[in-house]
Design a binder for these strands. Sequence first.
DNA 1: AAATGAACAATAACTGATTATTGTTCAAGG
DNA 2: CCTTGAACAATAATCAGTTATTGTTCATTT
Lengths: 204, 204
Amino acid sequence: MQGGRASVGQYEFNAADQADPMVARILDAGEECIRRFGIRRTSVGEVARVGKMSRGSIYRHFGDKDTLVEAVFTRLQQAFLNRTEAAMEGLPTLVDKVAYAVVMGRQDAAEGIYASLAQTEPETVAMRYLAPDFYARSVAFWPGHIEQAQAAGEISTTVDVATATDLVMRLAVSLVLFPDMGLKLKTHPEISAYLQRMLTRGLG
Amino acid sequence: MQGGRASVGQYEFNAADQADPMVARILDAGEECIRRFGIRRTSVGEVARVGKMSRGSIYRHFGDKDTLVEAVFTRLQQAFLNRTEAAMEGLPTLVDKVAYAVVMGRQDAAEGIYASLAQTEPETVAMRYLAPDFYARSVAFWPGHIEQAQAAGEISTTVDVATATDLVMRLAVSLVLFPDMGLKLKTHPEISAYLQRMLTRGLG
DNA sequence: AAATGAACAATAACTGATTATTGTTCAAGG
DNA sequence: CCTTGAACAATAATCAGTTATTGTTCATTT
């Protein structure tokens, strides 16, 4: 609610404590350590050294290592959603938006922190990909865009926003997690065409 | 191709070496060990003891422990698909079939071998759920039913069978893996109603 | 012909002592 | 006030020595 930026989404995906510079420094250091060493092999002592702060400060702001790690990933996800939300403004249709989100999601999975983690801790990555919380945070992204698509006549108003959001989430998550589910949906145009059909007409 | 049972599916989901009784005994013993001890804590010596056979026989039929473990899971999946295929005969529509498969898939995940494994090796279960091979074997299940639905006029023939199969797979897998993706789709009727809408009309 | 069981080196799992890290507290400093 | 750095017990990671398991071979049995 604090930002004045134009956005079709209802929420700015910022953590409440984003303002605190100490928190940001700790998260920066934590993120760098996780990228370089993985979760298992970063100690909070190492985070403190990298961030040039005391271990005490880290434990003041984050109760334990687990909380810090979660906060790092939550911030990354928020950054991803903010980037994606910004890109949405230039995309005319819901289909374009979902296709773009899928392409960006795949890129993030292939090149981002999960890709480096997958080298040393693939089981951890798999667990995170299946965690309900991971997706719960993305659900709030879509309703605004669904409503816009309904207002533009792109999709029907007979499906309520929550239900439409659910389908969009399922298709988007599925397309990121499983590029090939019988069909090999690889390129952006292929994904767009698929979504065009499935979102607007299903198999009918 | 060997079975004479009526089936809308193109394939009987049987392994080629299903006939060999030794193979079956080894798989039985392997499955029991995995159920009781998990993958990590079953040795092939233990499998041999449980199955009352020599270690040599196991290594004759399965090159290594990994191959045996994979064979156990493949056979379980084939059994699941065979059971589900049998149930399909009594279900009139594609929506009924997919909904049923989702309900059975959830039950299997909650009560089957994956549920017991999840207690001691959740990371292993997560890895298996994300493995492309796991789904690749299920893809062949649907085309027959898709064609039947097309012939009955339930779904359009303008979508080719492979594409329709892909959507069905994505929705089914997603509904098993993520019961709540914004909407909480819990009961059989809720799943049926959701699939009815999404398969036949999408958001249009 | 396949199954067995023994033998074997190579590899992986276990175990207990040692070291590092975590989580907590607190007095001192900016 | 928050940060620092030190101290501390409790917990977890590490390491080298030991034991178990794996993967392979083969002579013997059925």
